[in-house]
Write a protein that binds this DNA or RNA. Structure first.
Lengths: 247, 247
DNA sequence: TAGTGGTCTAGACCACTCC
DNA sequence: GAGTGGTCTAGACCACTAA
């Protein structure tokens, strides 16, 4: 049997466009090219890496397909800033007044430091009992509760959040993580399921006991796929709708 | 304002790879190239359509990305046979014995000819009241009911199904459509939601009254995106789990 | 007008499959 | 060995954006 190639050897056996893609995503992960900024032009990248433009295009194609970059003809290629604030709400259809979508308001119900439970520790790939910051948050439209969230963050990385008054958190949390904790959320894995609402959650969401709720469990990750945040959201199933295309 | 271009004019303004892609999918939709068969080689397609290989590759790339074609180095490019039998069941996790997945059995509860209702007619893009064939089907594992399905098919296209004994339908319906009605399902749009189970469905699914169920509404389409079948499936939410990757 | 990405060419060589 | 797709080149011209 042939000897197993080392990481470096393997790298050279990879197609050139693959190597270029790795170098591009390294620049982005290292934040040398920042979100909303244009990366160098295709011709420049081609000359830097000593490959033809077609090869650079293939590398960029792949990153565009994965949602890392965005192209605009005549303007350039830009690093995408993922915005999950809206992605979650894609799933829910909200009450609208005159066809205008309403913006949900956040209310933090609780903030505490507590050890990680089994399930959350496994999802965050940390030891059970590791100190964590836990938030309970309610999102409302017109004072009507819509989504109840249970958010867990490792204390070590996120302790800066404890110094901030929860009333100043605002509605978008991921920019907050970036500014205060130097942590950027790049992707997330969500798992959808449903259950009958518990008595406690029914009160907080103003639902009848036993009404069905959708449960969305999310693990948010950095660009190199380290788990950062665990979150479980519950909302009335009657407000929920999700579309998939199957081929 | 410039006059709106006709379909033909528009076609010529489209990029060549786009035109080639349309011609390729037309061959597939017309079943001149059948599922599991290899299509002509890239060089042949290039010479037939008088474009370079790179352009053909770009057209094929797009169809591969959409799951219409499949490439195998050294062998050729093949028309994919979509298999939805399994795709639905991706969403449900089933009881397994010794880690082996069980195969669900189908039981047809009802077959009738009836006019299309509002909702179904809209989804199938037909007039309300158009005659349709409606099936009620239960899928079970070990005599335990799992999924209840309500299936609607336009009578005009599918009348051949009325000549077949429902007990001979088997578990895979899309091949049946293909053989008896000359209709090929190429893709589907599914919408997931949840509700409290109705009294009638609770009896059929052997659930407690009011237990949450997942509702999957599917419109199955031909290669040229004509709606063919409307289907609504219900299963206990406790059996349901669905994962999404967000970027 | 200069610079960007979008499309396209007409080849080349390689890796793989099948006979 | 013949034929397939996989990778790659070194350009070209076009459409679009912004100064």
């Amino acid at each position: 049997m042939a000897p197993r190639p080392s990481a470096q050897e393997l790298d050279k056996r990879l197609p050139r466009y693959h190597q270029v893609r790795e170098m591009l995503s390294a620049e982005i992960a290292a934040r040398r090219w920042k979100p909303e900024e244009a990366i160098p032009s295709e011709t420049e990248i081609a000359s830097v890496h000593q490959v033809s433009i077609g090869t650079v295009r293939k590398a960029i194609d792949s990153l565009v397909a994965h949602g890392v970059l965005e192209r605009f003809q005549g303007k350039g290629t830009f690093v995408r800033r993922p915005d999950f604030g809206s992605s979650f709400f894609r799933f829910f259809r909200f009450a609208t007044v005159g066809g205008v979508a309403r913006v949900p308001v956040s209310r933090i119900l609780k903030r505490e430091v507590t050890p990680l439970t089994n399930v959350v520790a496994a999802a965050l790939k940390l030891a059970v009992g590791t100190p964590a910051i836990r938030f309970s948050r309610l999102r409302l439209i017109d004072d009507r509760p819509l989504v109840l969230e249970d958010i867990w963050l490792p204390h070590a990385r996120f302790k800066a959040l404890l110094a901030i008054d929860p009333r100043e958190f605002g509605d978008l949390w991921y920019p907050l993580y970036e500014e205060n904790c130097g942590v950027m959320v790049a992707s997330a894995q969500e798992t959808l399921s449903a259950e009958a609402v518990s008595a406690k959650n029914a009160r907080r969401l103003k639902l009848e006991a036993g009404e069905p709720v959708i449960v969305i469990e999310r693990v948010a990750m950095s660009a190199d796929r380290q788990p950062l945040e665990w979150r479980q959201s519950r909302g009335a199933a009657s407000e929920f709708r999700y579309q998939v295309e199957i081929r």
